[in-house]
Design a protein around this nucleic acid. Sequence first.
DNA 1: GAGCACTGC
Length: 855
Amino acid sequence: MTINAEHDRVISKKRKRGTEKGNELVKGSGKLVKFDDEDDAETKSTHSKQQISVPKPLPVLEPQSNDRRKSKKERAKKVEKTTENFESPPSDVHEIGGKATTSLSGQIHRSNASQPQTKHSTHLAKRSNAHQRNETQVPPHLSKKRDALLSTRKALPIWPHAEYIRAALRKNNVLVLTGETGSGKSTQVPQFLMSEPWCTKTIAITQPRRVAAISLARRVADEMGSLLGNQSPSAKVGYSVRFDNAAGPNTKVKFLTEGMLLQEMLRDPNMSQYSAIIVDEVHERSVNVDLLLGFLRNLVAETDQGTKRRNPLKVVVMSATVDVEGLVAFFDEGLAPLEVKTSDSKDQHNSCSSDSGSGNSSQKIPDIQSAVAKDNDQNARGTNQEQIRTPRISTCHVEGRQYLVKTVYLSEPTQDWVEAALKLIFQIHYKESLPGDILVFLTGQDTIEGLEKLVNDYAEGMDKEVPKLLPLPLFAALPQHAQQQIFQPTPYRTRKVILATNIAETSVTVPGVRFVIDCGKSKIKQFRNRLGLESLLVKPVSKSAAIQRRGRAGREAPGLCYRLYTEEGYKELEERTIPEILRCDLSQAILTMKARGVDDVLNFPFLDRPPREALEKALLQLLQLNALTDVGAISDTGLKIAKLPLTPTLGRVLVEAAERDCLLDVIDIISALSVENIFLNLVTEERKEAAEVARRELYRREGDHMTFLVTVQMYTEEHSDRKSWCEKHFVSHRAMQNVMNVRKQLHQQCTSLKLLSPHASTTSSSSAPSDSKTQAILASLLRGFISNTARLMPDGSYKTLMGNQLVAIHPSSVLFGRKTEAIVFSEFVFTGKAWARGVSAVQLDWVSEVVDAIM
DNA sequence: GAGCACTGC
């Protein structure tokens, strides 16, 4: 049943029944099977099953005010009690001193350190304090904060492992550290290492996302009693993300995004300013992290052989889930074969492991264990003698802090998980007392908005005694202020229902969630090499993603996770999400490798090796862009492109524009292409029509790219009130601010790459672009996007010039519905149909001109 | 005729 059909059904039913309310919902719903969930969802079959009883009559709800206060008090009591009984931190104190929760605007909501701040006077604390005193004068308010935080730090599961971690890295250059959410690894490990004898320079610690890098840096600065790098020259903690560098001359611990470190690596291949690189959140397996690990493996192998660096580079690889063996083998294979011999390699794998987080267990330092010897290594050397492996890669595992979450499956599979989710939302709402918000994982904006409407419609008919339901959508394209709503305190007698995409899986931590509903699907991007087309389709999630989603229910208290699929369905899921590097267009990654000096990309140490076809396709593409020479070496053009924060195609467009004397215009266009949609997505017909009129002065018949140019130009020329200019034209002000950031960065980089004269004006000509200018701009676009061209067919459809692939102009394009002899487009996406987005009209002979120039 | 999950430089 579609959302709309369901919606109609609901409405008509509501009209008929009037007062029967939400109870109706659960009737006829598939029965749910419930399992007790220990740690391991995979072993369910042995667990006792129980049928969830379908709709109880309306639960009698106690007066909420008392109820809520009482339960809070009770919980507080529980914390105290636990603290008395155990030396280890109470499990209620979740993530103390660990990650700060970040909202999307970068605001930080730190978890309260509810740990009583008693005076600890262990020798560790003394040592730490004395150490700090000797170094610099710390302003009193900073040292006060630092001392207050110390007890919280000591309560972290990772704290007892400090000495082990230090010893491991004194002995070996590589440490693989697994630690679950809340273990404190991201904040503590750099602090453990910074006063080590080998640590004469900076420690870098990478994060996949900007907000994480910034909030962790703030947290660690507080813990160390330091300012941030840009606040004072003496600051010891800093961060570096795009558009925001807060690292100072004395920065000892530097948090940065993976992409930022890769860029630094292009300038300084040996990472000579760092003593250690900590790569965090490796399990997310971004393309950047895969490249980093490959580069680091080579670097470690080089320093292992005593070249280039004075002190060997230390590498810590940190990951949440366990693929220790794989990571250990990965780094070990890079090292030179060892001469010595030893007994059975299997027994050598003893690692440090925390004692279920109880904290006081591991004061004794375990032996540093060795990497597992690889069989094929031995075979390669053609000897029957057993090889000795001196320990070379250390491992360590630290428990996290997570409450138990029960998992509930459907007893029968369902096609309509929107309906199933709707039923469950109300079932939970009627059955479970407050507080406890619901987080629903859905696939996209469409289903989210559909379900939001359904929940609202149903909720209208609820009894007045029943607490209210507040559905809140959450997806990346949602305006900032709307996203902020999930961080607002829940109103009195209300339960929030957050309807989210997988943005809530990693990027945004939603507070207050006790119930998770997981539809088991998500939209996955997959690049098709042969067509040069990326598809975005709804696919089943992996087990690890499902586990991650479930974990969102247990961050503040024990929780419940409802999976809108059967237990059998769960077992059939892939173990892990396919790493991005196996799914994406590799041209940018390959260019980065070439720029970093990797000549033989086919034999680059990939953690997961992309298929040869994908690598070759990317090489071919780079060759076509003249980023590589005929022999496959990086060209001058390629080097320039690699340093730009753009895909190789867009980088090539920019270089071409410099030659065709339209660089400033093309920078404006590319800046607009680099951010999310600059034109607001409008819902109602009324607003859509109003927008059509208001944007008339922006739209250009040449297509989207010239429209972007005019929009950016008019925006920059608006000096009085840009915000109201945006409102007037139904343009996203936030997107335009991002455009201006990118534009400024591109101006700077083009200047330093000598594509732009330092004296050039920073604004493109304000008057409407002449025909010849327009043609130069479109020719530059064609140079990069020559394979993204299509011609009009007699039947009115478009087919790509290379590949004869059917393609339609996307409804968001200003050329939507228009017929023109040929088009060039900057995006080629398949979502049920092949769409061209970012489309410009061109003439066929321009296309052949560019083709001739390339051949 | 109809629609994009999420990061990052």
